[in-house]
Each structure stands twice: as C-alpha cells, then as structure tokens.
Amino acid sequence: MPRLLLLRHAEAAPSASRRDIDRRLTPGGRSAAVRIGAYLRSAALAPNLVFVSPAQRTLETLQEIERGLGRDLPYVTVPALYHASAETIFAVLSEAPSNIDTLLMIGHNPGFAEAANVLSKAGNKADLARLRAQFPAPCLAVIDLAPIDWSDANHARGRLERFVTLATLEK
C-alpha cells in the first residue's frame, strides 16, 4: 500500500522585496523543518523519494528536513507543484514511479490542504477534524492509499494515518 506524506513548507519570510518564489524560510521555519525531519526519523517515516516545488522555501524545508533526518533524500524538483491545485497534485502523483512505497511531497497551500482533505476518507476523528480545520506551516499529513500504484491515487480511499503539526510535536 503506497504511503503519501504531504508536507506544507515551513514558515517563510514575507515577500516584501522579493518575488514569491524566492521567499526564504525564517529562522523559526528552519528550526521547525529540522524538527519535522527528526520526527520522520524517530517515527520511521523516511520517504523513498521526494517531489518538491521549486520555490526557495520548499527547497530549504527539504534541506532542513534532511538535517533533522540525518541523511540526504532522493528528490525531484517538480515545477508544477509551485502553488499547485489539488488536481495538479493528483496529476503529479500519478507520475510517481510504481516502485516507490513512501513518497514525500513538499509544497504550498491551498492545494496541499485540499489534496489532503480529498484523499483522507478515513482515520482518527480528531486528526481528521484538525486537518480539515487548518493546514499550518509546517504540517505533515501521512496518508495510506488503497490503490496498487500511484496512478489511481486521486480515486483512493485514503486513510489519514496521522496529522503532525508543531503543536502535536510539543505534546
């Protein structure tokens, strides 16, 4: 059963004088991404592959996750993930190699929140309620998908296995 990790990037600085795509993580965002990486390590959730948006903040989120995880991850920068809609996210998912068990996607709202909501048909009621209420920066939705391969992911009866935010990491 494929496992999808949908991660909204960590907190980024406002786009005062920069283009949106060039926004960098704040110091707090960097720290938070390291914590998410450490969580992935401790929960044995390291992905086989990462699809990441080309935005500076998503690439920096990946770098800090690798730091917290303690190793580099194979990744592909996917231009279509920059401010992608849920439909675009599903199209990108359908292109994932069939030999990948766990895929991490790092991107942006509102598309990531919409995709997580569409895919999460079942799961712990409290986690589902928190997911539907807010998808903060950063947060991680771990979704187990029922199809045999990624090409049918958008039709999956996904199960939200867990929903991780900084607040839940502090508990």
Rank of each mutant, 00 (worst) to 15 (best):
P2L: 09
L5R: 01
L6M: 09
L6S: 02
H9W: 03
A10R: 01
P14M: 15
S15L: 03
A16N: 15
R18T: 12
D20C: 02
D20V: 11
P27H: 05
S31M: 11
S31W: 12
A32T: 07
V34N: 06
R35M: 07
I36K: 02
A38K: 12
A38V: 14
Y39I: 05
L40T: 08
S42C: 09
A44I: 14
L45K: 03
A46V: 04
P47I: 05
N48A: 14
F51R: 05
A55C: 11
Q56A: 12
R57K: 13
R57F: 04
T58H: 06
L62W: 08
Q63F: 06
E64T: 07
G68M: 13
L69W: 04
D72C: 10
L73I: 11
Y75I: 15
L81Y: 07
H83C: 12
S85Q: 08
A86D: 05
A86L: 13
T88M: 13
V92H: 08
S98Y: 06
N99T: 10
N99K: 15
D101M: 13
L104G: 01
L104P: 04
P110R: 13
G111K: 10
F112W: 03
A113E: 14
A116Y: 04
A116I: 10
N117D: 12
V118I: 12
N124W: 07
N124P: 06
K125H: 14
K125E: 13
K125I: 12
A133D: 07
A133H: 12
L140V: 11
A141K: 03
V142K: 02
I143P: 05
A146S: 11
S151W: 10
A153G: 15
H155Y: 14
H155A: 10
R157N: 08
R157E: 13
R159M: 12
E161I: 15
V164M: 01
V164Q: 00
V164R: 02
V164K: 01
L166V: 12
A167R: 11
A167W: 08
